[in-house]
Amino acid sequence: MNSKSSKNLILIISLIAILACGVSAAIKMANSAPTYDGTGTDVVGLYDDPSTYDNSGADGVASVMVNENNDKTAADNVVYSVVFNYRGYDTLGESFILIGAIAGTMAILRRDKRRGSRKIVYYRKPADNSKASGAVGMEAVGDNDLSTNQYKRKPVIVRCSVSFLMPLAIVYGWYIVIHGAMSPGGGFQGGVLAAGTVLLVYLAYGLTGVRKAFNPSLLHVTETLSEMTYVFVGLLGIFGAMNFCFNFVLSGSEETAMIMNDAVGYHVMAGICCLLIIMLEALGTDEVLPDNGSDNITEKRKAVAQ
């Protein structure tokens, strides 16, 4: 016990010290000059004539990036330019992390030895609540006992709204991806939005529905291919006698960053879908209809009528 209290004491003192140092550093940081003082930059002038920039008074990398943005890249959104042009290599590394997370999650959650690889444990509410067993008052039902389409669906309102929202989510996600160059957004944000469809399907149709709608191994292969596209676009720069990630098709509104952006968009969408499916599969449970096979909704409707 003695060591436990001394550990707590150490923790409290350390946290106070970190906070104190942090706050003193914060005051110092708040009083120092901003990292990019854009007040002197004429942004309207830059937009009208991109070549009229002057980097002599630059006070940071951001200043140079904003000044050169319209001249050297085809995007209006400077953040997008930073992500895919100036720091494209970081973005590459960032999407490697996603692939690593997917491969790692697949490795950690694989269950080839102990159970069948793709099997759902179905649960249902017992006919009489008194002999409740299992995890949450449900009883387990083998896969074989079920005829098709007997898994429990959610209420019709949820299903209808999901059917309505699903295409909207995908279209909205890809709208964000494609318009990343001129409005807030880009590959990552849009991809994540589009990947939300997996959760929508799960909400309405359960794991059985997710399994019918998506093919995780295909998603994994295609997202890896899209990531390879990114790398090859980068390598094309080298074969064009320039450096890695060189922006070699810059003309008007087109640049390599667009291909990279779309590749990242697809990669993130497929990757997050894949990740979600793997984690949902790990739970591996789904609820089925009660014994008598009648629909929940009709029962409730009857109950209301009575």
Partner: peptide
């Protein structure tokens, strides 16, 4: 990377 050589003294 991408031939973004330093501009002035700033490595962009």
């Amino acid at each position: 990377m991408g031939n973004w050589a330093p501009v002035g003294e700033w490595a962009i």
